[in-house]
């Protein structure tokens, strides 16, 4: 019976994951490998294709002004505009992660302050795991898989923008080697969200109890789904250490950009999450 409960939990979290996250790993890998009936993604590989690609995605924050600017001005503004759009998508993703968290059995019964803390500390880690399937060594899907942005292009942006994605590529390439599927991912995301060691938690015990159940479900899921992959459960859990360092570095970079980029404004939801984070 216990094993049946753990399988039911895995199915429930997988269904929530499919409900709240629009681009699954299965879909992303199909797009990246060309095995989909949908159109191939538009490739952004330079400033010209960025401007073209930008017209395909929703840029809410800044109007187009490039016809009034010098070439250098266009580059400067396009980078800022692109990252505003990227922030807007991140805010939407945080909303999706929040809905997923609320679907974890027992989560909404936790102290409301603790729910806030778990999300504050967990969402960026979850988002990094979520973008991993969108990445390969050459670039990343963005905008729900409509666009593929090359890694070389991201590296060619001016500092500090060029430093933002490279650590995520390095992490993702290694993480993708674990070959988790969407159901494995759903359970792992729930484990990350239910971390009982986040700073400032008021009542740790119920969080740890919930996490323990999800951990058992993940362990069973990995045994069944990857019978030949030795120590996969341990390897997946080890990624949580790398994730914390990635988030710390990411937040430091964003906070530095807030100070050095005069035209930079951070989305209010990201401000909330990153304020006093690490």
């Amino acid at each position: 019976p216990e094993s049946a409960d753990l399988r039911a939990l895995a199915r429930h979290l997988y269904e929530s994951y499919l409900k709240y996250f629009p681009l699954t790993k299965a879909k992303a890998r199909a797009i990246l490998s060309g095995k989909t009936s949908d159109n191939a993604p538009f490739v952004i590989h330079d400033m010209k294709s960025l401007v073209e690609g930008e017209q395909m995605i929703n840029c809410r924050y800044m109007p187009l002004h490039e016809h009034r600017r010098s070439d250098l001005g266009i580059m400067h503004e396009v980078e800022l505009r692109f990252f505003h759009s990227y922030q807007s998508r991140s805010a939407e993703a945080i909303s999706e992660v929040t809905e997923f968290a609320k679907s974890i059995p027992g989560f909404i019964n936790l102290d409301l302050n603790d729910q806030v803390t778990l999300l504050k500390y967990g969402v960026i880690e979850v988002m990094i795991i979520m973008i991993s399937p969108l990445m390969n060594k050459d670039g990343t899907l963005i905008s729900y898989g409509q666009i593929f942005m090359t890694r070389e292009f991201l590296k060619s942006l001016r500092k500090p923008f060029c430093e933002m994605m490279e650590p995520k590529f390095e992490f993702s390439i290694k993480f993708n080697m674990l070959e988790l599927d969407d159901c494995d991912m759903a359970l792992f995301l729930a484990v990350i969200i239910l971390s009982g060691d986040r700073p400032g938690l008021l009542d740790v015990k119920p969080i740890e109890d919930l996490q323990e159940t999800v951990l058992h479900s993940l362990e069973l899921q990995l045994k069944i789904n990857h019978p030949d992959s030795l120590q996969l459960f341990a390897k997946v859990l080890q990624k949580m250490t790398d994730l914390r360092q990635l988030v710390t570095d990411h937040v430091q970079l964003i906070q530095m950009m807030k100070e050095t980029e005069a035209d930079w404004s951070l989305h209010p939801l990201l401000q909330e999450i990153m304020r006093d984070l690490y």
């Binding site: 929040t98 803390t117 400032g200 304020r275």
Partner: peptide
């Protein structure tokens, strides 16, 4: 804490679909 995280709090309290950000 929830006072300092009004949007996050709103997302948590919202009962159905993700709210417009």
């Amino acid at each position: 804490l929830k006072e300092k995280h009004k949007i996050l709090h709103r997302l948590l309290q919202n009962s159905s679909s993700p709210v417009d950000l």
